[in-house]
Amino acid sequence: MQRGETSVAASTWRGSEWKKLARGLAYIAPAGIIIIVFRVLPIIAAFAVSFYYVMMGKIVGFAGLSQYAMLFRDSEFWNALLNTTYFVIGTVPLSLFLSLFIANLLNQKIRGLGGYRTLYFLPVVTSLVAVAMVWKWIYHPRLGLLNYLVGLVGMTPKMWLEEPRGIFSMIAGGAGLSLPEWASGPSLALVALIITNLWRGLGYNIIIFLAGLQNIPGEYYEAARIDGANRWHMFWKITWPLISPVTFYIVIMTTIVSFQVFTLVYLMTGSPPGGPLGTTKVLVYYIFEKGFESGGDMGYASCVALVLFGIVLSLTLIQRRIIEKRVHYN
C-alpha cells in the first residue's frame, strides 16, 4: 500500500511536476540569468577575490585571510569607518525627526498639501551629481550663498567643505575651551555633507511617513479627542505606536543607504576626494580608491566591501531585534 503510493508520487513527479518546474523556470529565466550572472556570481567572486593579492587588476598571489588581518592595522580603514559612522549617526536621527515632524504637519486638512508634497519630494528625483555640484557651489568659502546667509544672521563665514576641524572642538573653541583629539567630532566638511544628504533624502521619508499616517483610522483620534486628550498625548499614545512599523522601515533604510554614501564625497570634497585631511573619506570611497584609483588593489577593496556588508547586515539584524519588541503590528 505504502509502496504503491510512493511509486505513484514518484511517477507524477517524473511527469507533470518536472514539466511544471521547467515551465516555471523558463518564465523566470530572462530575469534569473541576469540575476545569477550579475547579482549572485559577483558575491561569490567578491569572497574569492578577497583571498588574493591583486595589483592593477591582476592576481599576484594567494593571501588567505591575511588581508582581513591587515584591515585591523590599517589606520585609513578605521578612519573611514569612523567617518562613515559619524555620517550615519548624523543623518539617521535627524532625518527621522524632521521627516516625521513634517509628515505630521502635512497629515491634516490643510490647503496646498499636494504642492508641499511635490516640492519636498523634488530633491529625491534629482540626480546626486547635480545635487553635489549645486551644494558645492553653495558652500563656496568666498562666494557661496551659505556664507552670505550665515553673515545675515551675524555669524562669521566658515570654510565648510574645506574645514578639517571637528565641529565639537570648533564650538568649544568658540567658548574658549579646547577638547582632546578624540572628542573633536566630525569635521565641518563632513557635517556639510550630512546636511546635503539630509536635504536630498528628506522627501522620501516624509512620503513614506505620510502614507503610514494616512492609514491610521481617524476614529482613533476622534475617540481620544472626546476623552479630552491633547495633541501631544494623541501623538505618543496613538500615532507613535501605530506608525512604528514605518519608523522601523525608515530607520533601517536610512541607515543602510547612508552607510553607502559615495557620490557626495567623490564630487564635493577634494582634491583628492576624502579631504580635507581625510576627514570625509568614507568606506565606499575607500573601496573605490583602493580598487580603482591607486594601483587597482581589488583583493583588499573586496575585503573592505565585505566588512561593510557584514556591518550593514548585523546593524539590520540588531535594529530588527531591538525594534521588534517595541513595534506594534496590527
Partner: peptide
C-alpha cells in the same frame, strides 16, 4: 517556487559597494 522567491529577495540586502569590484571583473 517559494524557496526560489525568498532566495531571490534575500539578494536585496547586499549593498551595492560589494558589487563594484567583482562586477568589474565579470
Amino acid at each position: 517556487r517559494e524557496t526560489l522567491f525568498i532566495l531571490m529577495l534575500s539578494m536585496m540586502i547586499v549593498p551595492q559597494a560589494v558589487y563594484l569590484v567583482p562586477s568589474f571583473i565579470i
